[in-house]
């Protein structure tokens, strides 16, 4: 019998399918819609199966699957532009002056303010982040990946992962503060 062919199916089930949580969670956070997330993950696995020959055993399967997912996401939702997101936040030199401005915010260090924010608020704030920043925040803070793994996933240097995380969290914090203000948790 033709073992090579059936082994393809077996190997794919064993090696690729167990990573569906990582892909589904990311897809859900990116699309904010369970049906879209399901479609995206299905499309990813279908493509992965068809191109299984291109996967080199022993290399990072999670990164390989993630890239397929990311490309599918871009093709579906960002066809209009593959350019990097919005403003260039990469320059680490911008950080220092910016924090001095933020220092004038009152109340943002109060744990009680953050504690009153709900899951929906945080999900909404994450959803509003530009894609590149949202991606690293999801991968690091929700999925618990290391900088090295995130760099392999998004195919960029470690320094870029770090700076996107810093900016992403800062943008998120800013949005959460404005929600808190809207709700009267902080003046």
């Amino acid at each position: 019998m033709n073992h090579r062919k059936s082994n393809r199916h077996n190997a794919f089930e064993k090696e690729a399918l167990p990573h569906s949580d990582l892909l589904y969670n990311y897809a859900l956070r990116m699309t904010n819609n369970a049906e879209d997330a399901r479609d995206l993950v299905q499309e990813t696995y279908l493509k992965a199966y068809r191109f299984w020959d291109k996967y080199e055993p022993g290399t990072n399967i999670r990164a390989w699957l993630f890239r397929i997912l990311k490309n599918s996401y871009i093709n579906r939702y960002r066809k209009e532009s593959k350019a990097p997101d919005t403003v260039d936040f990469e320059g680490i030199q911008n950080y220092y002056p910016s924090i001095r401005d933020e220092g004038s915010d009152s109340g943002d260090l109060e744990g009680s303010v953050f504690n009153r924010l709900l899951e929906d608020d945080v999900a909404q704030a994450i959803a509003e982040l530009p894609d590149d920043f949202r991606t690293v925040v999801i991968l690091c803070d929700i999925e618990g990946l290391t900088y090295e793994e995130i760099a392999a996933f998004v195919d960029c240097p470690l320094g870029t992962v770090r700076s996107r995380l810093h900016r992403g969290r800062k943008m998120l914090r800013s949005r959460l503060l404005s929600y808190a203000r809207e709700r009267g948790y902080v003046s």
Binding site: S20, D21, L23, Y24, N25, L28, R29, A34, R38, V41, E102, D108, L109, G111, F114, L117, L118, E119, D121, V122, A123, I126, V137, D141, I142, E143, G144, H166, R169, K170, L172, R173, L176
Partner: peptide, 19 residues
Amino acid sequence: LERRTKVLIQHRARMIATP
């Protein structure tokens, strides 16, 4: 501030497993 933001994300935006 950044540490608190990370903690908040971790507490309020948990990993959602594949249904």
